[in-house]
Design a binder for these strands. Structure first.
Lengths: 212, 212
DNA sequence: AAATTTAAAGAACAGTGTTAACCTGTGCAA
DNA sequence: TTGCACAGGTTAACACTGTTCTTTAAATTT
């Protein structure tokens, strides 16, 4: 049935077009400005049509959430080739920071907003955050490798991983939310927060080096 | 003019009652559920009356933002008596974490939401985030004291402070947003994230100890 | 050709922040 | 005492939001 195929393909196509329109609005105008009606206007369909392809708005932003994780994993992939575990760990940290700073909107959806996490709790069985798990596993494995090289002696792998994640996430989220910027303007009157993020990261790396 | 006084006092009173109603809704139902109309219903006034006392909604949430910083500073105050700078630093970190975990809604407004920061940019001259500055100064001074005791040798005070802030903020925000919870459920099937926050904090403290 | 399924749209509901226009009672000067 | 200005408060309305119910129109199947 070639007709059936073409129809389902067309349907998948529209589903994709909705997501593309949502992403366009999302990255240009931010989450606040991304409404169902504006998405509909973008693809020249009725707002209600969107509900034939996505359950609700949180379903769409969850799709973006997943797309963000795909991007992040693709950024991470080449780093897995780095042989030295510790250098790999540093590279992961740097890469994570760069991702957050170059895609602040995606970072917000992926790691800061409550909505996508609530979506998981409601729609999935329980905590089926596969995308997050995959990325975290990369971190876990790298830290395990570091421990075999003598780093993080006597420390629990998971605890080290959560702490490391918190540190880089803390920098990213303070950057994305604008809190770092405001603090910088007050403490030292500069708005070169990018430089400060890098410097703070280096301080963290300095701490890690002491564990060997 | 006793009458004039009573009137202005009554006006101040209503301004306070609006904020109290907003806070009540805020802590019981979260930010999302705190609407102008619901606040008005709570104080049994018309929604438009609120606009006679607050410029707009962001003005109200900024007031809550400030109130949160007042609470945090009050929590911090007794810690300033701790003589040992390093013990004081640890106490500040613990206190910050506890604040975020016991008042997640306030923490969100104070350190995670973009709105209050944007309010500052628009309404004030430029970066007049006095409340944040005060708290950060406490951290800065404590780290300076630590450095005199031999900690953080060869490191920049501000960079150390930003890094420390990022680390505890990272833990808090992952906790508040629910991301830590979801990750915990996947990696190790437990939802005792409070314990994990504490453990990750101890790992961080362990790092800091190595700088001496 | 008739019946049925399907995609899309229209209208509407309940909610949001916010503004302009309109009362309505109080205080004061003529 | 009358007229007036002004404060505090409300009503109605605008322009949005996400979402659902009902309806239309086209395509497919019988």
């Amino acid at each position: 049935m070639g007709i059936q195929e073409r129809k389902t393909r067309h349907k998948e196509d529209l589903r994709k077009r909705i997501l593309e329109a949502a992403k366009k609005l999302f990255v240009t105008a931010g989450y606040e400005a991304t409404s169902i009606r504006k998405i509909a206007q973008e693809i020249e369909f009725s707002p209600t049509t969107i509900y034939l392809y996505y359950k609700d708005k949180s379903d769409i932003i969850y799709a973006l959430h997943q797309e963000g994780f795909l991007m992040l994993r693709q950024d991470f992939q080449p780093l897995m080739q780095v042989e030295s575990p510790y250098e790999r760990l540093k590279a992961i940290g740097k890469c994570y920071l760069r991702f957050g700073m170059t895609h602040p909107d995606f970072y917000e959806v992926m790691f800061m907003m409550k909505d996508p996490m609530k979506y998981l709790e409601i729609h999935c069985v329980d905590g089926e955050w596969a995308e997050g798990e995959r990325v975290f596993d990369l971190l876990l494995q790298t830290i395990r490798d570091c421990q075999q090289d003598g780093y993080f002696k006597g420390l629990d792998t998971i605890e080290v991983a959560v702490q490391a994640w918190s540190s880089v996430h803390g920098l990213c989220s303070l950057y994305v939310s604008g809190h770092l910027r405001n603090m910088m303007e007050v403490v030292l009157d500069t708005n070169e927060q990018e430089a400060m993020v890098e410097k703070a990261f280096r301080v963290f790396v300095h701490y890690l080096e002491l564990t060997k």
